[in-house]
C-alpha cells in the first residue's frame, strides 16, 4: 500500500459532493454540447480571437476543484467577451492551496488593471505571492491574517518583475503600476475550535460574499461601487502596487448553509445585490459544489454589456456525512 503523503493522512479521497439526480449521460451520438447560458439579453456571439502572441501562457479559461476533510473548493476564471473580441489575454487570475499542517484553505483572486501593459502577469504573480505569503504566515502560527503584510509581499513581487523587465535597480511605483497594476482579494478559511472561520482582505474593488444556500441571499463582505450621494457608479480603484496601511478586512464564521464566494467585478457587477437573475443562477448552481468545469461554464454566461473577465472562487463547509 502506498503510504499517505504529508497532509494526506487518509489515502481514501473525500466523498464526492451530491450530483444531479439520474445517471450521467452515456457516451454516444446523442450527447449534446453545452449551450452557452444566456441571462436576459445576450451579448454579441462570435468566435474568440487569439490574444497577442506573447500572451500564450494565459489561457482563455482555467478552473480548479478539490476537497479537504472539512472544506470543498472550486474556482473558475474565464476571459471576458471584450478581451476575446479585442485580442487581449484574460487579466483575471485565481490561485488556491491547502495549508497541509492545518487543513486550512488559502486563496487569492486578482483582476489586472486593463491599462497596465502586463496586467495578466501582474494578476497571476500577485495571487502566487499572496498565497505563498499566507502559507508562510500560517506556518508561523499567525492567529490573525495581516493583510497589509500579504499585500506588501505581493507588491514587492510586482516590483521584482518590473526590475527584471525594465533592467533597473529601483523601478518607480508608477512604472510598476504601468506594467503590472492589479487588484487583489485574498484570505484563508480555517478551523476556529469546532467552527470554521473565513478571513478575507482586499486591495481594490474585487469582492467577497457569503451565499445563503438555504435562502438564496448574498451577504457582501465589502462595500459596493455606488458613488456616495449620487445615483452614479464608479469603478475607481487603488490597485497594487499601492498598499494601504490597513486594507479592508472581513472575518466571518463559515457554517451551513453559507458558502464563501470571492470574485472579481466581472462577477460582482452583474450580480449586484444578488436579487436578480444572475443571483438566482448562481444560488441554484452553487447549492452544492459543481464540477470545476461546470462552474467555468456557468461563469461564462452571456449578458449584454457585461463583457469583463470573470473569476469566482467558492468554498463550502463539508457536511459531517460527506467526509
Amino acid at each position: 500500500m502506498t503510504p499517505a503523503r504529508r497532509g494526506d493522512p487518509d489515502p481514501v479521497p473525500p466523498a464526492a459532493p451530491p450530483r444531479p439526480a439520474g445517471p450521467p449521460p452515456a457516451a454516444g451520438p446523442e450527447l449534446v454540447p453545452w449551450q452557452r447560458i444566456t441571462v436576459d439579453v445576450p451579448g454579441l456571439e462570435f468566435e474568440a480571437r487569439p490574444p497577442s502572441q506573447y500572451a500564450f501562457d494565459f489561457p482563455d479559461s482555467e478552473c480548479e476543484g478539490w476537497s479537504t476533510d472539512r472544506l470543498t473548493l472550486r474556482f473558475a476564471s474565464v476571459r471576458g467577451a471584450k478581451h476575446r473580441y479585442y485580442r487581449q489575454p484574460r487579466q483575471d487570475a485565481a490561485r488556491a492551496a491547502v495549508h497541509e499542517a492545518t487543513g486550512s484553505i488559502v486563496f487569492a483572486v486578482a483582476d489586472g488593471v486593463s491599462s497596465a501593459a502586463e496586467s495578466h502577469q501582474g494578476a497571476v504573480e500577485a495571487c502566487r505571492a499572496a498565497v505563498e505569503r499566507i502559507l508562510y504566515l500560517l506556518d508561523r502560527g499567525a492567529e490573525r491574517l495581516d493583510g497589509a503584510d500579504v499585500a506588501a509581499h505581493a507588491a514587492e513581487r510586482l516590483r521584482e518583475l518590473a526590475r527584471w523587465r525594465l533592467g533597473v535597480a529601483v523601478p518607480q511605483a508608477a512604472e510598476v503600476a504601468r506594467l503590472y497594476a492589479t487588484t487583489l482579494v485574498a484570505g484563508v478559511v480555517r478551523a476556529a475550535g469546532d467552527a470554521l472561520e473565513a478571513e478575507v482582505f482586499r486591495i481594490g474593488d474585487s469582492g467577497a460574499w457569503l451565499l445563503d444556500r438555504a435562502g438564496g441571499g448574498y451577504h457582501p463582505l465589502f462595500g459596493g461601487k455606488a458613488v456616495p450621494g449620487t445615483p452614479l457608479v464608479s469603478n475607481e480603484v487603488s490597485p497594487l502596487p499601492l498598499v494601504p496601511d490597513r486594507p479592508e478586512t472581513a472575518v466571518e464564521r463559515l457554517a451551513e448553509p453559507w458558502t464563501l464566494l470571492v470574485g472579481t467585478d466581472g462577477f460582482g457587477d452583474p450580480l449586484g445585490e444578488g436579487d436578480g437573475r444572475v443571483g438566482e443562477l448562481f444560488a441554484s448552481q452553487l447549492a452544492s459544489p459543481p464540477t470545476p468545469l461546470w462552474l467555468g461554464h456557468v461563469l461564462d454566461f452571456t449578458r449584454e454589456t457585461f463583457d469583463d473577465d470573470r473569476t469566482l472562487l467558492a468554498i463550502w463547509p463539508r457536511a459531517e456525512g460527506a467526509r
Binding site: 469603478n235 475607481e236 469583463d308
Partner: peptide, 10 residues
C-alpha cells in the same frame, strides 16, 4: 467604453 467597465475607469 473599453475602460469604464474595467478596473481602470478613466
Amino acid at each position: 467604453g473599453h475602460a469604464l467597465n474595467s478596473a481602470n475607469p478613466q
